[in-house]
């Protein structure tokens, strides 16, 4: 099966068409029990770019990216409808191998969640499940991932200390290293810096700009300066609908929808 996806005119106000999107959501709906949280949303995620999702709290930003790796499924009553296409296959179809899907699409959460084990094990734990490496290869992979997350120099002598012993910002980079070790193609980041101090936030933003050379990033953020600083495209969500999608630079200087403008200029949200 190879689904043909028409380029979307991003039904709302949008001047861009994304070529070869990594992930394409079409008519994506979402329900928490009886209440609908997303309404017929279309969104294309551009390869090797940072796509930011902004909007007031409760607008469905997190809900949207939680569909991509189907993490919502472990909760009763949460349901998604529509299509999310990756590599020509609908990842919402029941035949999808979720384990493989989640290896390809990594996720970083709001609060750093180091596993209750050593720094080394935090990174190695998932690697062991997905790859059959020798001890040497494993060590190499761990070092590589920690380097990619710009954490290696700080922890190379502490590899066998518990992950919880690190500072908040370091913990979050450990989580990024852990996700990178799976060699994902896409990294979903759900407000990754909201629980972290400004200096650590700056480091993670820097890191994201480096990472986009190798992988695609979708970041949910409530911080508009952050979206402006790091993203290439921005989607503005409001009450479960995508109001506007476009190149970040254009959207922050010249939003086409009045609601977007109100939000960006801080008149509500």
């Amino acid at each position: 099966m190879n689904l043909k996806i028409e380029p979307t005119p991003h039904r709302t106000v949008s001047e861009v068409v994304i070529d070869d999107p990594v992930i394409s959501a079409r008519k994506l709906n979402f329900w928490y029990g009886g209440s609908q949280a997303l309404f017929d949303n279309d969104l294309d995620v551009a390869p090797l770019k940072v796509t930011a999702i902004i909007g007031p709290s409760g607008c469905g930003k997190s809900t949207h990216i939680r569909v991509y790796n189907r993490i919502f499924e472990q909760y009763r009553g949460q349901r998604a409808g529509g299509q999310v296409v990756m590599d020509g296959a609908d990842l919402l179809s029941p035949g999808t191998d979720i384990i493989a899907l989640r290896r390809r699409i990594g996720m970083i959460f709001q609060k750093p969640t180091p596993f209750p084990m050593s720094i080394f094990e935090n990174v190695a734990y998932g690697v062991r499940l997905h790859f059959s490496f020798t001890r040497k290869q494993l060590e190499q992979k761990v070092e590589e991932s920690l380097r990619a997350a710009a954490l290696w120099d700080e922890v190379k002598d502490l590899l066998h200390k518990p992950g919880t012993a690190l500072s908040g910002g370091q913990q979050q980079r450990l989580c990024i290293a852990r996700a990178l070790a799976m060699s994902p193609e896409v990294l979903l980041m759900d407000e990754p810096t909201s629980a972290i101090d400004p200096v650590a936030t700056a480091r993670i933003e820097e890191l994201m700009l480096e990472l986009k050379q190798r992988l695609t990033i979708v970041i949910v953020t409530h911080n508009m300066q952050q979206a402006a600083r790091i993203s290439d495209y921005t989607a503005f969500f409001y009450q479960g609908r995508i109001i506007e999608f476009g190149a970040t630079a254009r959207m922050f200087t010249n939003p086409s929808h009045p609601r977007t403008e109100e939000y960006i200029t801080g008149r509500f949200g």
Binding site: I71, I99, M107
Partner: peptide
């Protein structure tokens, strides 16, 4: 959040429970 971050790494449910 700990469950989610383990599952999001593609760690199977049973390994998430017994290992983490």
């Amino acid at each position: 959040t700990l469950r989610e971050s383990a599952l999001a790494l593609g760690i199977p449910r049973w390994r998430t429970i017994t290992g983490i």
